Amino acid sequence: METSLRTLLLRRCLPPSLVLLCAVGLKAYLRPADWWGRALILVVIGTAAWLLVRIADAVIDTWYARYAAAAAPEQDARVRRVRTQVTLIHRVVTAVVVVVTVAAMLLTFPAMRAVGASVLASAGVLGIVAGIAAQSTLGNLFAGLQIAFGDTVRIGDTVVVDKEWGQVEEITLTFLVVRTWDERRITMPVSYFTSKPYENWSRGGAELTGTVFLHLDHRAPVRLLRERLELILAELPEWDGRSSGLLVTDTTPHTVQVRAVVTAKDSDDLWTLRCAVRERLIAWLVAEHPYALPRIATAPAAPGPGEVPGGIPYEAPGPE
């Protein structure tokens, strides 16, 4: 792992290191003055910040790769949580370095040093004004930190927000990207996930239970249907074997509602499993028990006691 870190440092830090060495060498050898010397100072400061960010990138990426490789398969949720935290920490470090670099560049100008005292004196008022103006941005910033270290949602989690199902693809300090099943990207402020309810199907584990509903005729062979479900699940690799079942959950004047319950290791397998079970059950009913499919009755109803065909009440003749 040390070799990997050394290689990564060399690959990422070589360009800024060369630029920094050249700028420092020119500054020390030529001793330029006026605007040329100030430009070299700015280059040195900017390149040093660039080098610092690249070093942080290499260290963070190498540490995370080692952690993810050493984690057991059942620790996937923990790995995704660490990935979310590392991503946000990296963004915070980069933002801090950029701010400090810009401040250091500005302080190289004499005019900026002259007004430094007045800027510091008014920093409190400016901070209050900036806080009010950027209330939404600061709210998203703190919400992003809360998500990263509160473990409420992680990169790779399957979530349902605003009736849209998808996986968390990216988390930044201000927004979060959800990739839907049809490859659309929904960008939402991270404050949404700290102020509104949402579904996180990966919370506490990726295993899920799904249902398949069928509307059948009242004469449907429920016992045979239940046995057929078990045979179908045994042939499908998406079923994780945890649980299954089939029950009649409702009835209407024309049909009965049958619910099949299946389980899978994650949301993708569950969707595939539900579709396959529904398709195979319907195909089996069409081939073996077509009478069990729902239909609209158009024939006259059978006469009840005391009725003749047609629904006219029958009255026995009295004595003459």
Rank of each mutant, 00 (worst) to 15 (best):
6 R>T: 13
7 T>E: 12
7 T>P: 09
14 L>F: 15
16 P>W: 04
18 L>H: 04
18 L>F: 12
20 L>G: 11
28 A>P: 00
30 L>R: 12
34 D>F: 09
49 A>Y: 03
49 A>E: 01
51 L>Q: 02
55 I>T: 08
58 A>W: 01
58 A>F: 00
66 R>I: 14
69 A>K: 00
72 A>L: 04
72 A>T: 13
74 E>V: 08
75 Q>E: 03
77 A>C: 02
78 R>G: 03
86 V>C: 05
86 V>P: 03
88 L>E: 01
90 H>I: 01
96 V>H: 02
99 V>W: 07
102 V>P: 11
103 A>L: 12
107 L>P: 14
108 T>P: 14
111 A>P: 09
113 R>H: 14
113 R>Y: 15
115 V>N: 03
117 A>V: 09
118 S>N: 09
120 L>K: 07
126 L>Q: 06
128 I>S: 12
129 V>L: 15
135 Q>L: 10
135 Q>A: 11
137 T>K: 13
138 L>F: 11
140 N>P: 05
141 L>Y: 15
142 F>Y: 07
146 Q>K: 07
146 Q>V: 12
147 I>V: 08
147 I>F: 00
151 D>A: 09
152 T>Y: 03
156 G>E: 08
161 V>F: 14
162 D>E: 14
163 K>H: 13
167 Q>E: 07
169 E>C: 01
169 E>N: 02
169 E>H: 06
171 I>H: 00
175 F>D: 04
176 L>H: 04
178 V>C: 10
179 R>D: 00
181 W>Y: 08
182 D>A: 11
183 E>R: 11
183 E>T: 13
186 I>Y: 01
190 V>H: 06
191 S>R: 04
199 E>F: 02
203 R>N: 15
204 G>F: 09
210 G>V: 00
211 T>P: 03
211 T>F: 03
217 D>K: 08
218 H>P: 08
222 V>F: 05
225 L>I: 00
227 E>F: 14
228 R>P: 03
232 I>Y: 05
237 P>S: 00
238 E>C: 08
238 E>N: 09
243 S>R: 11
244 S>V: 02
245 G>D: 05
246 L>W: 07
248 V>N: 11
248 V>H: 09
250 D>F: 05
250 D>K: 11
250 D>N: 15
254 H>L: 04
255 T>W: 13
256 V>H: 02
259 R>E: 06
259 R>H: 08
259 R>Q: 11
261 V>K: 03
262 V>E: 04
265 K>R: 15
265 K>D: 06
268 D>F: 13
269 D>A: 15
271 W>Y: 13
271 W>D: 12
277 V>D: 14
277 V>T: 11
278 R>W: 05
285 L>W: 00
286 V>R: 15
287 A>D: 15
293 L>M: 05
294 P>L: 09
295 R>V: 02
296 I>A: 13
299 A>E: 14
300 P>I: 09
302 A>S: 10
304 G>D: 06
305 P>G: 05
306 G>S: 10
307 E>M: 13
307 E>T: 10
310 G>V: 10
311 G>H: 02
316 A>F: 06
320 E>G: 08
